[in-house]
Design a protein around this nucleic acid. Structure first.
Lengths: 121, 121
DNA sequence: GCGTTTGTGTCACGCCCTTGACACAACACT
DNA sequence: AGTGTTGTGTCAAGGGCGTGACACAAACGC
């Protein structure tokens, strides 16, 4: 599931987890209905207290992305529609363009850089 | 100077500031020798305590990017070489490629998305 | 030289976060 | 029905962080 917490990051663990969960749902890596790890299991894996993981789940649930039920675990809400892949790609491209232009590069240079990146790996 | 702190972000203010400072120096937005705002002024502008801003300055100085002197203010270290623009562009392109491929897109689709982004604005 | 500016250091106070443990309630499974 | 699982809630304790105020030291500007 690829959830991690960086102890050296001053950002509170519950917030690191929350952002990753939101991202997993919005990107569709977790589909509606998918079950998340139980609180205790995830807490054990990440070296966190149960209450800390519970807070992350609770906040993402409050955002409407998850649904928790006692005994039933926590699952991705059925009505969440992951952002369509084309939209996400476009958002990535927009971000790349904006940052690259901020550095003062021309469109041609930006294209060349992408070509180099694609050919490299 | 475009330094901001988001009160709603659980990330500690000193850390938000620190990251922005590092970024400004590494991108060359702040050149070696450039003077940063005095502690008290920046603290006042951002609505922070002097000690909080001081901590950010201190940590970036510990990283070798700044030099502080009493009465002389805080300046960008003379020996810091901003990461060359071409390298930064290439890093941006690599990041874009990696994320886009993770979404399952082909090289052609990635190129098309960039083209669309460039034409859009 | 003198006053001002500026960074540094300290202190107590309060808030937020994490932890660990525990009890409880609702669901799943047999 | 009974057992185990799972999420929820509480509590006290400790640590990290921000704040505000203050004193101090070093450099600047006149």
């Amino acid at each position: 599931m690829n959830l991690t917490v960086d102890p050296d990051d001053p950002t509170p663990p519950y917030e690191q987890l929350r952002r990753q969960l939101v991202r997993l749902v919005e990107t569709g890596a977790l589909a509606p209905g998918d079950r998340l790890p139980p609180l205790r299991q995830l807490a054990g894996d990440l070296g966190l207290a149960v209450g800390t993981v519970a807070r992350s789940y609770r906040e993402v649930e409050a955002a409407g992305l998850l649904v928790s039920r006692r005994g039933g675990g926590t699952r991705v809400a059925a009505d969440v529609r992951p952002t369509p892949a084309p939209r996400r790609l476009r958002a990535l491209a927009d971000g790349f363009r904006t940052e690259a232009r901020r550095l003062g590069f021309s469109d041609a240079e930006i294209r060349d850089a992408l070509t180099a990146a694609l050919e490299a790996g």
